[in-house]
């Protein structure tokens, strides 16, 4: 059952874990992990993905491919929260011998469907999974999360041709459209133009959504498939979302906070989480009053 408050709480926990594990690791990618936190929280805790953390290879599960593999911390936080492995592992991120590698490693980490980190490859992998699942006649769906800069890889558009050609209506590609990549704003580095329009022109069912609005995300992610068409969801997000000094700042792509910055960041995330919970409670009680 979808419960907005639960997803919001999980998103807060995911953000806190992202900051904590990256500060402990001393390297990694906060910006693109934070921008995707609400999307990933909705997938795992908003009754979208069907999964069993105790049985990661359950054939009945939906698949999630983190195409933008450098955002590994957001996936690790969600997997730990979901019970795939002990949360203590988060603090070993990127260390020698760790289960949690700098980029997702399917041979080491339960819940990681496939190793990624080389941009532009995941959508093709997701196409292959979706094609196999469709051929087998199963109800499982395949979700994948791409960066907007990542869309510059030609392979993404090879996959974008493949998916509608094979009528992969069990495939959902989410674009974390935060407007930034490493060398700056996507529009300055290599402009992407109308992303939704491009996917539509390739034969996809495409929609745009506020990537930080949990209800809106839940609605598009759980919507019934559009007959015969794969779906592209362009999620408008802010890189570094939730940590004001990181928000919209390209240089926070691959730099980690020092201890003091991490403390400030966590305080801000917690404070925003508490305010949101109070607002939710108020609106529930005023609704209650109205009905009474």
């Amino acid at each position: 059952m979808y419960n907005r408050t639960r997803v919001c709480e999980q998103a807060v926990k995911i953000r806190l874990d992202i900051i904590t594990m990256l500060a402990a690791a001393g390297s990694g990618h906060p910006g693109g992990s934070l921008s995707a936190a609400d999307i990933v929280a909705t997938l795992y805790f908003g009754d979208v993905l069907n999964f069993d953390a105790k049985n990661p290879q359950d054939p009945a599960r939906d698949r999630f491919v983190l195409c933008k593999g450098h955002a590994a911390p957001v996936l690790y936080a969600a997997l730990a929260q979901a019970g795939y492995f002990d949360k203590k592992e988060l603090l070993n991120l990127r260390k020698l011998g760790a289960m949690l590698q700098g980029h997702p490693d399917a041979l080491k980490t339960p819940g990681v469907e496939v190793s990624t980190g080389s941009l532009g490859q995941g959508l093709s992998i997701a196409c292959g999974m979706a094609a196999a699942l469709k051929a087998a006649g199963g109800p499982q769906r395949v979700f994948t999360l791409l960066g907007d800069g990542e869309l510059q890889e030609g392979q993404v558009w090879e996959a974008a041709l493949f998916a509608p050609h094979y009528r992969l209506d069990n495939l959902v590609a989410i674009i974390d459209s935060n407007g930034l990549q490493i060398d700056g704003a996507c529009c300055d580095v290599m402009a992407l133009g109308d992303i939704a329009g491009k996917f539509r022109a390739f034969g996809w069912d495409a929609c745009e959504v506020d990537g930080h609005d949990i209800d809106a995300l839940h609605a598009v992610l759980s919507a019934a498939p559009c007959a015969d068409k794969p779906r592209a969801i362009i999620a408008h997000t802010e890189k570094g979302k939730g940590v004001s000094f990181m928000e919209g700042v390209a240089s926070w792509h691959g730099v980690t906070p020092c201890e003091k910055q991490a403390r400030e960041a966590c305080a801000e995330i917690e404070c925003a989480g508490n305010e949101a919970r109070d607002r939710a409670r108020d609106s529930v009680s005023s609704e209650g009053g109205h009905h009474g």
Partner: peptide, 25 residues
């Protein structure tokens, strides 16, 4: 898209008309 890491950004700043960024491609 890795001009800071490779240090080619320095060349790009000095010779902007001889520097091209292909994006992640």
């Amino acid at each position: 898209d890795l001009s800071g890491s490779t240090t080619l950004s320095k060349f790009g700043e000095r010779y902007p008309d001889r520097f091209y960024n292909a994006g992640i491609a």
